[in-house]
Amino acid sequence: MSTILEVKAITKRYGGLTAVNAVSFDVAEGEILSVIGPNGAGKSTLFKLISSFVPATSGEVLFRGAKISDLAPHKVARMGVVRTFQETTIFKSMTVRENIIVAHQLRAKASLLGFFIGSAQARADEEAFGASADDIVDFLGLGAIRDELASNLPQGHLRALGMAIGLATNPTVLLLDEPFAGMNHDETMNMVANVRRLRDERGVTVLLVEHDMPAVMKISDRIVVINFGEKIAEGTPAEIQANPRVIEAYLGSEDAAIGM
């Protein structure tokens, strides 16, 4: 498997505080890699650094060998590295289908002027987006809520919608920020299955930051553990579970115990 994403000694300081300190790891094409760590370990910052939503103090992120850590977020997204959000970030006053359609922006071939005057290309785009949105709705099993306003959806569906938005951009690498947060067991298992199918059927590389240990152990090919902003371990789920530094980090916090 070839490397698709390289995180190289990425560092973020806020004033005197170092949130992320020289973290490096590689993501291989088509793998599901999770970043875990106790509360306040710097997971969220790391996530924002990779998606280029905050500028790095030093270090860089390469996508297929090209530096993406200095680019504007929409340019990073355009290259194929797309994030979803930790907060249930969706367009609240749009329906599920509208949410997904608008998220097809990256695939738009017509110009804004084209959309304004309704050029042939624009009409073709609109049609393709509609079809693709329906496709995604079916893929994630959201058919029943297709025309529901997003602000009326329960938590579990919002997560799925967040993922649908991510999918609509046709990502090469999908960054998922705590996709299982606030879900019950059944919802979590459903989401785990969806993420796996995403990789298996659509060939999407998935990098996720997550809290929920059992889900991470089930879903990941490899895991990177960070604590106090530094990488303390990297390996398969089995290796991570047996790693004394990881166990120590988790016992030292009030977080849920590691394990299945």
């Binding site: 997204a77 355009r78 797309v82 979803t84 609240k92 922006q105 938005i165």
Partner: peptide, 9 residues
């Protein structure tokens, strides 16, 4: 949601 808008390109 401006942030989400920019993250979808």
């Amino acid at each position: 949601n401006e942030e989400l808008a920019s993250s979808i390109g």
